[in-house]
Design a protein around this nucleic acid. Structure first.
Lengths: 219, 219
DNA sequence: CCATTTTTTTAGATAAGTCTAAATTTAATG
DNA sequence: CATTAAATTTAGACTTATCTAAAAAAATGG
């Protein structure tokens, strides 16, 4: 069994590794789990002993197959709980992250299975992130950053890069929720800000480049 | 904020205090939380510093008002989660205890409120135990042990003393679930075992004294 | 009411996870 | 490529919650 702390490290490493199998640095992890680099080194030794990571001093780390499995299971639980909170308990999508950070550590395979059934075997969480299945497989849609979309193209919002409550709240206030179809009307060369219109509502919104590069869309 | 461990001690002390405000002994607590008495003494000092318990060396402990409040909140969460697991996720009543022991430590007042609403502001958990409200108040029904009921009386099963899965499973197998109306047909003097009949089903069951004194009933 | 048993507390250690400060390794740069 | 800067690890210490063994207090019972 793994402790809460170990699970959090594995999750952080998983996220830092991204798609590729690149090595993750001690400082990156320290930053992600909000602890001193020296503490991270200690934990890396421990996770290495447990065969959860590949670790060679000064060389960075990557997850082993078992490490990846654990990480994906935590992520699965996190996203299922987020969806539960939003769809069943009427939480807003910007409120659920911290609570899910607690719930993701509840140990019970049966509970996860039942929750999964209860929610109707969902494929995505309230932020548009895919929910891994029991085996760790998940849908990976081809998404683009809204900031990369050329003028006059119509796209659908399917996710966010930044998950902070304040950003999510800003999106809601601007009428930009998941699933919305939008058209890029005009991009300003100078600051790369965009004027976009929301389909079926004549409404148009002006968003900064900073915002646009945190919104994921599909064609 | 209190740690998981502190919460478990407070819950244990609350349960050991029972109705009265009697003092609870170190050994009783050690037994309840499954740790060595010496460890309990350490924790008692800590809880005393935090003004959660009244503690004088060698004299036993009792909860302060804040200690009781914390304990009741944990119990509230425990019972709400048990009910959630049974009514929403189709767990059996004998499966939920250990899982609720984990879930009861999730910190979020909002979550508790929402769960409470979601479950329809319930008054009792799946084992017939009352669920304290936000303020720590709960219904206390006048219940009796089935073992104390005289022959030919009709009573309703409203709870259990022993919460162990094996006992609960035995009850289910014998058709003795919460809410069932039963009549005590005959008590055997020798071993105090009972022959009882279940209303609306002609079925009669023979139960030992050990079983009868772990079933709570109302007249 | 004194001796023995039981209960409780103290003392000293251990393991997990963290820290700061110092040492070491790697990377970057003139 | 030698020196400085940055990243990483080691060393030593702290906190929380636990343990065992020994000491102290309370309870029991002839």
């Amino acid at each position: 069994m793994n402790s809460f702390t170990e699970e959090n490290y594995l999750k952080a490493i998983y996220k830092l590794m991204g798609q590729g199998d690149g090595k993750v640095s001690t400082n990156e992890i320290a930053d992600a789990v909000n602890t001193a680099p020296a503490s991270v080194t200690d934990m890396l030794k421990k996770l290495s002993d447990k065969k959860m990571i590949h670790y060679a001093k000064y060389k960075g780390v990557s997850l082993t197959v078992s490490g990846k499995k654990v990480a994906l299971n935590i992520i699965r639980k996190h996203r299922l709980w987020e969806l539960f909170l939003v769809t069943k308990l009427r939480f807003k999508w910007d409120e659920v992250h911290d609570l899910a950070e607690q719930l993701e550590h509840i140990q019970s395979e049966k509970l996860v299975q039942r929750l999964y059934q209860f929610l109707g075997k969902p494929k995505f969480d309230p932020h548009g992130d895919p929910i891994p299945d029991e085996k760790g497989n998940f849908f990976s849609q081809k998404t683009f950053l809204l900031s990369e979309i050329k003028d006059l193209h119509v796209v659908t919002i399917t996710g966010v890069v930044d998950h902070h409550p304040s950003f999510l709240q800003y999106l809601v206030k601007s009428g930009l929720s998941l699933g919305k179809k939008i058209k890029v009307r005009e991009t300003t060369d100078y600051d790369k800000s965009m004027n976009i219109s929301i389909s079926n509502s004549k409404v148009s919104v002006h968003i900064s480049y900073d915002v646009a590069k945190n919104i994921l869309v599909t064609l």
